[in-house]
Write a protein that binds this DNA or RNA. Sequence first.
DNA 1: GCCGTTTTCGGCCCGACTGTTTTCAGTCG
Length: 605
Amino acid sequence: MSGPIFFPENSSILFLTDCDTLLSMDEKKHMTNAELADVFERIANLMKIQDEMVFKIRAYERAAESLRSLGEEASLLAQRGELTQVPGIGKAIAEKIEELLTTGKLGFLERLEQEVPPTLLDLLRIPGVGPRKAALFWKTLHITTLAELEKAAREGRLRSLPGMGEKSEKAILDGIAALAQRSQRMTLARAWTLANRWLEWLRAQPGVERAEPAGSLRRWKETVGDLDLVVATRDSAPLMEAFVHHPDVKRVLGQGENKSSVELQDGARIQIWAQPPESFGALWMYATGSKDHNVRMRELAQRQGWSLSERGLADEQGNLRRIASEEEGYAALGLAWIPPELREDRGEVEAAREGRLPHLVEVRDIHMELHTHSTWSDGAVSIEEMVRAAVSRGYEVIAITDHSSYMGIVRGMKPEDVLRQREEVEAVRQRWGKQILILHGAEVDIRADGTLDYPDEVLAQLDLVIASLHASLRQPREQITARVLNALSNPHVDILAHPTGRLLPDRAGADLDWGQVYPALQASGAALEINASPYRLDADDVHVRHAASLGIPVVINTDAHAPVGMEEMVFGVSVARRAWLTAPQVINTWTREMLLEWLRKRGSA
DNA sequence: GCCGTTTTCGGCCCGACTGTTTTCAGTCG
């Protein structure tokens, strides 16, 4: 067979004459939405140190946020001249994006970095140090780096500055020390486990009428920094006392009547808020966020002559209307209740006002598991055990999809094993076929050279083919995208699994060119997987939302390697919900007849 | 710098907590 094509016609080689160096060419081609967002965030922070107008700064921050939640590459929007249609991006920022996309540089940022030493941005990472303090250190003591700041603090040179004292000086030293061992963000699984333990503790405290999760945890963001918990109580002071003196607490970051925050022995941070039950709705809305969503809520309140806070709505005379439930709070603003997963200021406010919030998919809508492993590859139990687990969850369909043999680290199946496995699948079908439909599939590796691990004759015999990347994820964008496109061009491939291969909380995945992956998915009719493992959640909410808007079917798979793995479905569903998906857009909510019909049309079942 | 159910100009979210202060600025979410 002929080798795969890694250099499509838009390869940088053809453009060499247009640019000074290959490097700048690379910058030009590779400027992703996340990288563009980073640039605008950098601008915003530098401008803060400069004490620039807050609303200008806010505009850059909004633009950055908007770019991050854009499912489509900004470069494609730029080509179509549609950048200014993105909320938060106007003429000036659109021009800056275009400059970045065409030259890989931004004159405005370069001038800004002449005026404000960019190393000052490092100081902002210290808790308690913001732009004002950073500017103060720079302008009075000519401090521009973390090391210089630490030295000055040790020498006691900070305490004499206006607004500083011995305590602030010590806080800065502590903060710098904490930076080195700063706890990373938690996976959702870890965050929920920790949160449930603390909620149980809170609910057992005297006077606590209600305790609930809030913050990014309740919004099911893919990773969680601090845990935010809310409490309804009429007597918060003793609760806060008990909280900060809990034996798991290493350090108290702040303690007040309405709010306290601590760092635990293992570095995790927890913050609790308290209000009386009459204000619980306002508090829960506030603490759930997101920040951007809250700003929108407060703008709405303001337009009606109110001020919205965590206690309730106040009129211009300061009369407080307490808000006991979220439903009441949203209704007062003329909105339907918004599911927490949507509260990111990505259009949910308008949808709630116009009564067109989606009816989001739920865990109970799911009745299929289409990506599982058994002892035929790296799974922990037999096919029959996995089938039994699926039946006990009430599922109607399970696909057994063991690994192909490419990966050295797992025991994959050689093509000849597939035939032997089919015999075992048949035997299990004899025993379980009345209760559940068992599909014989495989998770076939997309090799580093872009070819699939099994020949077409083998793929054709499988009920379901999942294609996925495991190795060589760091290949350049053109190359790794070409691998995926090559896999999708094979008509036997039904599902593209965990497309980027990222590992949460912090290993980035492949640098896929989604501008090519979406059309390839559309052309092939294959489904995009949301891998439900809390370490993957791949594809992510932003890309899933865009894919679904293009009509690409989505499937939520736990990729279970043991029965317990199937419990992770809830994390996958949370990604689908954050992507605004309704049940019909998710394959594993379908009836088995619909699934079989889909597979039949694809020619593989 | 962005944006329009009061606006194409004049607005742009709100309060708790800390550490420094004799009434408040800075940070945070």
